[in-house]
Amino acid sequence: MYKLSISDKAFNVLNYGFLSFVLALTFYPLIYVLSASISDPAAVSSGNMWLWPVDITFEGYRKVFENNAIWTGYRNTIFYTVLGTLLHLCILLPCAWALSRKELMAKKAILWVILFTMLFNGGLIPTYLVIKSLGMLNTVWAIVVPNVVGAWAILVARAFFQQNVPDQLVEAAKIDGASDFHIFFKMVIPLSAPIIAVMALFHAVGLWNQYFNALIYLTDQDMYPLQIILREILILQEVGGDSAAGAVGQTENLLEQAKTAELIKYAVIIVSALPLLIVYPFLQRFFVKGVLIGSVKE
Rank of each mutant, 00 (worst) to 15 (best):
V296H: 10
I270P: 00
L155I: 13
S295V: 15
Q237E: 15
M49T: 05
T57Y: 05
Q162E: 14
L115S: 13
N15D: 11
W152L: 13
S100E: 06
A96G: 14
Y224P: 00
N68D: 12
E298V: 04
E238L: 13
A173Q: 07
T219S: 07
G135V: 14
Y211K: 03
I233S: 01
A151Q: 14
G241R: 02
D176F: 07
I56E: 09
T26C: 05
S39P: 05
F161T: 13
D242A: 10
L255R: 01
N213P: 00
A204T: 05
A42L: 03
V268L: 00
S20I: 13
G290T: 04
C95V: 11
N48P: 05
V248Q: 13
E262S: 13
A159K: 08
L87I: 12
I143M: 15
V188L: 06
V145G: 02
F212D: 10
Q221H: 03
V149Y: 04
L191P: 00
D220K: 06
A200Y: 01
V296F: 14
I114M: 03
T127W: 02
F21L: 12
L155W: 06
Q210I: 04
A267H: 01
F184Q: 15
A214Q: 01
H203K: 09
N68G: 12
L276A: 09
N12R: 06
A193Q: 01
T117K: 08
L255V: 04
I293M: 10
L169A: 13
A200V: 01
R62G: 00
G60Y: 01
G135P: 12
Q250V: 09
S100R: 07
E66F: 13
G135W: 13
I269M: 06
K107S: 09
I278T: 08
W71N: 01
I91R: 09
I78M: 12
P41W: 15
L86T: 08
L218E: 01
V170W: 09
A36E: 02
V248R: 15
W50Q: 10
G249S: 08
V239I: 08
F287L: 09
G249V: 06
Q227G: 08
L87R: 05
F65M: 03
L283T: 10
E103D: 15
I293A: 10
K108T: 14
A159I: 03
L155F: 11
Q257L: 04
A109I: 15
P281N: 14
L263P: 01
N147D: 12
L92S: 11
D167S: 14
I91F: 10
Y211V: 03
P94Y: 12
A157V: 11
S7M: 13
Q227D: 12
G47F: 14
F181L: 10
G294Y: 07
K289P: 00
I38F: 11
Y211Q: 04
P275L: 07
A157Y: 08
G17L: 10
K9G: 08
N253W: 09
Y224H: 09
G249C: 02
I228C: 08
D55N: 02
A24Y: 06
H203M: 11
S192G: 03
T57S: 14
L134E: 10
R158W: 05
Q257S: 15
L23F: 14
